[in-house]
Computed example of a mutant assay.
Amino acid sequence: MLYGVVVFPEKHVQDFANSWRRRLDPHYSAIPAHLTLREAEEWSDDELQTAVNHLEQITSAMPAFSIQLNRVSTFYPVNHVLYLALQDTVPMQQLHDKVCSGPMTIAEPKYVFTPHVTIGQELSAEELHDVYGNLRMQAIDLSSRIDRVHLLYQTDNGSWTAYQSFLLRG
């Protein structure tokens, strides 16, 4: 089964992101607005249990924190993705580093970790530039408390649902 690890921002951030995702993100109906900590991967039952144990351990020592999203950015030309960017990526980077350590280390990551909330993907270059040109002019000032990590799995219909949530208790 396919599993991934994410955090969900607070509802007001999800609502803002979803106002764009409805039109620009083909995965809008499959998963709520989120920040990916570990890309999806096929796991056996043993690997799943190892991941659960690891997430229990790291979240017990990590405190909750706040993030600030302050602009729209893009991964163009590598990927035709628009996203909400963080003002300070350090707390999310630290959480990612802890999640992706020990038994959950990623040997060869596909991308450099860039914490973000996707608002559009699989766009044509023209549409990406048009929407990005408009959005980068908007003043964005969204904050969100991050107090839990979610282990998700993909269902047969392609949507994602929580397998287990882990409170940041440090």
Rank of each mutant, 00 (worst) to 15 (best):
P32Q: 05
A33R: 00
H34N: 06
H34I: 01
H34G: 06
H34T: 03
L35F: 02
T36F: 00
L37G: 07
R38H: 04
A40S: 11
A40E: 09
A40G: 13
E41V: 10
E41G: 00
E41R: 13
E41F: 01
E42K: 06
E42V: 07
E42T: 06
W43M: 13
D45F: 03
D45V: 04
D46C: 00
E47Y: 00
E47A: 11
L48I: 03
Q49E: 13
T50M: 04
T50H: 00
T50S: 08
A51L: 12
V52R: 12
H54R: 06
H54I: 02
L55R: 07
Q57A: 14
I58D: 08
I58A: 08
T59G: 06
T59S: 14
S60P: 03
M62E: 07
A64D: 05
F65S: 04
S66L: 01
S66H: 09
S66M: 06
I67V: 15
I67W: 01
Q68L: 13
Q68R: 13
N70M: 04
R71C: 02
S73N: 12
S73G: 10
S73P: 00
T74Q: 03
T74P: 01
F75T: 10
Y76S: 15
P77L: 11
P77T: 11
P77D: 10
P77A: 11
V78D: 07
V78H: 05
H80Y: 07
H80G: 03
H80P: 03
V81I: 14
V81D: 05
Y83G: 01
Y83K: 03
Y83V: 04
A85S: 15
A85I: 03
L86P: 04
Q87G: 05
D88Q: 10
D88T: 07
D88K: 08
D88M: 01
D88H: 09
T89P: 02
V90S: 12
P91F: 02
P91H: 05
P91N: 05
P91K: 07
M92N: 07
M92R: 03
Q93H: 05
Q94W: 01
L95P: 07
L95V: 08
H96V: 06
D97I: 01
K98V: 12
V99T: 10
V99S: 09
C100Q: 13
C100H: 10
C100M: 11
S101R: 07
G102L: 09
P103Y: 09
M104R: 11
T105P: 00
T105Y: 09
T105N: 08
A107V: 13
E108D: 14
P109I: 08
K110F: 06
K110M: 08
Y111G: 01
V112D: 14
F113H: 09
T114G: 04
P115N: 12
H116A: 08
V117C: 14
V117P: 08
T118V: 14
T118I: 14
T118P: 11
T118R: 12
I119T: 11
I119Q: 13
I119P: 10
G120C: 10
G120Q: 10
G120I: 08
G120D: 12
Q121W: 03
L123K: 13
S124N: 08
S124P: 05
S124G: 13
S124D: 12
A125R: 14
A125K: 15
E126N: 14
E127R: 15
E127S: 10
E127V: 12
E127T: 15
H129L: 13
D130Y: 06
D130T: 14
D130L: 11
Y132T: 01
Y132E: 05
